[in-house]
């Protein structure tokens, strides 16, 4: 069967196609790719990719998360979160490494795991192609609105 590697019970990962509506807790040890609609929690031990056509309503947890579609819920990316040009996130974010491309929308609180100084040092090492946001600790617990256009440098 094409694209269905025989890997036993752990499975090859999950792909939610563009015309699929899914509800419940979607958990996978491997990668999860979403192009359709998901209403519920999404958890992967590896990567979660939310495609341009995808709409996720619920918390998303993974090591590497890429958002090109819409997520309405909290995101917890243990390693890295990237919101692309078409990505829209309405919810709080917790991650070590954050990339927001020009055109992205983020409405929510951003928390980065390491202490502020360490993160600031790390951000200095980033390339010109990507922008890492330093710690955004919201001490007043107010919702913070980050405009991707304002944060990203000129791409060209």
């Amino acid at each position: 069967m094409r694209n269905m590697p025989n890997e036993g019970t752990s499975g090859p990962g999950t792909v939610v196609g563009v015309n699929v509506a899914l509800s419940g807790t979607l958990k996978d040890q491997n990668d999860i790719i979403i192009y359709g609609m998901v209403d519920g929690e999404v958890v992967s031990e590896k990567s979660v990719t939310v495609g341009e056509t995808a709409q996720v309503k619920g918390p998303v947890k993974g090591a590497l998360i890429t958002v090109s579609g819409t997520i309405r819920g909290a995101i917890d990316a243990s390693e890295r979160l990237e919101i692309t040009e078409t990505g829209k996130v309405f919810g709080s974010i917790a991650t070590k490494d954050l990339v927001i491309r020009s055109g992205a929308v983020l409405v929510g609180k951003v928390t980065m795991g390491a202490d502020e100084q360490a993160v600031q040092e790390e951000t200095k090492e980033n390339t010109e192609e990507e922008v890492s946001i330093p710690v955004h600790t919201d001490e007043d617990n107010k919702e913070e609105v980050v405009d991707g256009n304002a944060l990203a440098p000129d791409e060209e």
Partner: peptide, 26 residues
């Protein structure tokens, strides 16, 4: 018993590991 999916489809292929591939052509 955790996840419910709804879709329109043309073909569902199931292998011996209970891996399912759902295809549709709109």
């Amino acid at each position: 018993n955790k996840v419910r999916t709804h879709a329109y489809f043309n073909q569902l292929t199931i292998n011996r590991f209970l891996q399912m591939k759902l295809d549709s052509f709109h």
